[in-house]
């Protein structure tokens, strides 16, 4: 794919899911990236890189209470730029962090800045209080998918 990538270009409905719980934060990273592995967008090394980074630097990818943007570097095992959304009903915490987390945004970004527009959109979506409420309490996976893909193109 060339040109700007918006969320709807790199998020498939089948990669948006709601799960009941995770056993711990490492399980959260595994579950939060498995759709990307299943789809061939990343290798399992990418998941391991996120876990390694979290052990080294604390969970720096927790954007705000409730939401984590799971990601590592482009050369940690990314095949193709893609997003996934995993909502965990039962909140959990990353080691060293005090915030409860429910929403895991899985992000694989290949070399370059193609994913920038999508990230901008994510930032805009989450800056709205109503959207934030929906993101942290979706009723269905479809609702979560719609929340993130119906933003107007900038």
């Amino acid at each position: 794919m060339v040109g700007k990538m918006y969320i709807k270009d790199i998020l498939k409905p089948e990669n948006v899911e709601i799960i009941e719980s995770v056993t711990d934060w490492k399980d959260a990273i595994i579950k939060g990236t498995r759709k990307l592995i299943e789809g061939g967008f990343i290798t399992h090394e990418y998941t391991e890189a996120i876990i390694a980074n979290a052990l080294k630097f604390n969970a720096y990818f927790v954007l705000c209470p409730g939401i984590a943007l799971l990601h590592a570097s482009s050369n940690d095992g990314v095949n193709e730029t893609q997003l996934s959304l995993t909502y965990v009903k039962e909140p959990f915490r990353f080691e060293g962090k005090e915030e409860d987390v429910n929403l895991l945004i899985g992000m694989a970004a290949s070399e370059g800045n193609d994913h920038m527009e999508a990230i901008k959109q994510i930032a805009i979506i989450l800056s709205d209080n109503e959207n934030m409420k929906k993101a942290l309490n979706p009723q269905t996976a479809e609702e979560l998918y719609d929340l993130f893909t119906s933003i107007d193109i900038l």
Partner: peptide, 15 residues
């Protein structure tokens, strides 16, 4: 800055 340089750091730079 963030460890990966393309996620958290990017969102933060935009804000």
């Amino acid at each position: 800055i963030c460890p990966a340089g393309l996620g958290s750091s990017l969102i933060l730079s935009m804000n």
